[in-house]
Simulated assay, not measured.
Amino acid sequence: MTFWRGQFPLILASQSRARQTLLAQAGIEFTAIPADLDERMVQESSGLSSPGDIAALLAHEKALSVSRRKPGQFVIGADQTLALGLRLFSKPAGRAEAAEQLRALAGVRHELYSAVAVAAAGQILFTHVATAGMTMRPLGEADIEAYLDEAGEAVSSSVGAYQLERLGVHLFDHIEGDFFTILGLPLLQLLAFLRSRRLLGV
């Protein structure tokens, strides 16, 4: 069963399992084609410092990268940044860096900025950036080590070393914002845009 009514399948320019799951559970037929993009280089060469602007830029570039190869199809690009004050976080390179990120985030509030963009024929048609406020509970070294032991290699796949939909939920006291934003895809706003283009059956 699919609500997708486009002539051709929707494309998600992402390898993110969470984003793919969100679309699939919403009954959207899509094909995942990861963008060929050096995200770190794009970010550094842009000169941008606002986490929301950076997320939007990377979402644009991912969507455009695939759209240029598939000009007849609608392509979704998405990206997420994490900011603690003026500090921007990237995915940790390994356990030691994951532990350092958790120490920095423990007991304080940080922000997640999730951007989504839709492109077709090499042009951006839609962009939205949503924000979620995340308050991590105080963590001692024993807590951090126990979490890292259980989470394993997954800590390197997400900025901040956590996945809220999995073991990362144990790290938090309070969250502000919708679940879709936290998982990296502002789904309600994306669906509203697709409906405005009569690409959905509901």
Rank of each mutant, 00 (worst) to 15 (best):
G52E: 02
S67R: 09
S65T: 04
A59R: 01
I54R: 01
M41N: 08
P51K: 01
L64T: 04
A59C: 07
A56K: 05
E44K: 15
H60Q: 13
A55V: 01
K62V: 11
S45E: 15
A55K: 02
S67I: 01
K62M: 13
Q43L: 12
S49A: 15
E44I: 00
A55I: 00
S45C: 09
A56F: 07
S67T: 08
Q43C: 04
D53A: 11
R68D: 06
K62G: 11
D53L: 02
A63D: 06
R68W: 06
D53Y: 03
A59M: 00
S67L: 11
A59W: 00
L64H: 06
H60L: 04
H60W: 10
I54G: 02
L58E: 07
S65M: 10
E39A: 07
P51A: 05
L64C: 11
V42F: 08
A55S: 06
S45R: 14
G52R: 02
E61F: 01
L64S: 08
A56V: 05
R68K: 10
H60P: 03
A55P: 06
L57H: 02
R68P: 10
Q43N: 09
S45M: 15
Q43T: 04
G47T: 03
A63K: 03
A63W: 12
E39F: 10
Q43P: 00
R40E: 15
G47S: 09
Q43F: 05
E44D: 10
A55R: 00
E61Q: 14
V66Y: 14
L48G: 04
E44Y: 10
S50D: 15
L58M: 12
S46D: 10
H60F: 00
V66A: 13
R68V: 01
L57P: 02
S50K: 09
P51V: 01
I54S: 04
